[in-house]
């Protein structure tokens, strides 16, 4: 191997959305602008979608570009060419400009939607009330649950949130892989869409940053473009990056960047591996950029 890894270091580049949310900021998702059919507002940057209170706010590089209300408090957001907002008992689907297209209500299967993942064939929905991930086809038929075969009856979430992210498996034509934070067991787990456990990493450690501290960490998880796993922790808040095998690569930010009461900080990655973290207590989005040393 001749490849020398560039040092993986991050700095706090700025914040977004300070003052935009009065009570709560809960979910984040990125969309690459090429997906957006929004001829009225061409923007060269990626758009960050944030949900909290009862609204969606969309941010460009530096400022809010639009915002619209949702019918209930939003807990999660996902974006393809539409915007999906996860709420208690339902998912609301908007067009990119915020016009409501559809409301998907299901009190039983969509108890509390704390994460959504969308592919061409499937919709994955984390139901924190049932502590599992629901795998639907695009026609909204339930195919299977992920995590409910767990001995603990689901993911162990004393923090109240199930968060996952979809990644691609290795090789051509490989299937999606669901990366889930299982905080009560101090693990990140990988599942096939069918709910088979592929692998997991993580252990408890209150001192060594390689481990996950406290009762229940990590709380939220996402992937970088290169497949690295970004996790957030609570009490104290912290953001870390692991490789897919569970080797700690770097600590992006520790508690001083966030309100100490922040928990379940949703995280999204964007262009140039930028990392967006929802400071749920400070109610703003912290943006971290890689410090480019000579590469």
């Amino acid at each position: 191997m001749t490849q020398v890894a560039a040092p993986l270091e991050y700095r706090l580049a700025g914040t977004l959305g300070a003052g935009d949310f009065d009570h709560a900021l809960r979910g984040l998702a990125m969309v690459s602008v090429m997906h957006v059919v929004a001829p009225t507002e061409p923007t060269p940057f990626n758009l960050l979608h944030a949900v909290g209170d009862s609204r969606v706010a969309v941010y460009g590089r530096e400022r809010q570009v639009r915002s619209w209300p949702t019918s209930k408090d939003g807990y999660s957001v996902a974006v393809d060419d539409t915007v999906w907002v996860g709420e208690a008992g339902q998912i609301e689907i908007f067009d990119p400009l915020g016009r409501l297209i559809d409301t998907w209500r299901d009190d039983d299967l969509l108890g509390l939607v704390t994460a959504i993942g969308i592919t061409r064939e499937s919709v994955f929905v984390a139901d924190a009330a049932a502590r599992c991930i629901r795998h639907f086809d695009r026609e909204r038929n339930l195919l299977n649950n992920i995590g409910d075969r767990h001995r603990k009856g689901g993911f162990d979430i004393p923090n109240g949130v199930v968060d996952f992210v979809l990644g691609r498996g290795r090789g051509r034509g490989s299937r999606w892989v669901v990366h889930v934070a299982n905080p009560g067991m101090h693990r990140v787990e990988r599942y096939t869409p069918d709910g088979e456990l592929l692998g997991r990493f993580g252990r408890f450690d209150g001192v060594d940053p390689e481990g996950f501290p406290g009762c229940c960490n990590p709380t939220n998880v996402t992937l970088t473009s290169s497949g690295r796993v970004v996790v957030t922790e609570k009490a104290p808040p912290r953001v870390k990056i692991y490789d897919s095998e569970g080797q700690l690569l770097t600590v992006v930010a520790a508690d001083e960047a966030f309100d100490p009461a922040a928990k379940n900080m949703d995280v999204a990655t964007g262009f140039m591996d930028r990392i967006y973290v929802a400071d749920t207590a400070g109610r703003q989005i912290c943006v971290f950029e890689r410090t480019e040393k000579q590469s």
């Binding site: 162990d156 009560g184 067991m185 252990r203 408890f204 209150g206 501290p213 406290g214 229940c216």
Partner: peptide, 23 residues
């Protein structure tokens, strides 16, 4: 009570982890 595996009220969670994986 969350019946947590690692209870921060029971363990000194900042103490070194022993061979059993517990603080």
């Amino acid at each position: 009570c969350g019946r947590c595996y690692i209870c921060p009220a029971y363990f000194e969670i900042k103490s070194a982890v022993g061979p059993d994986g517990l603080p």
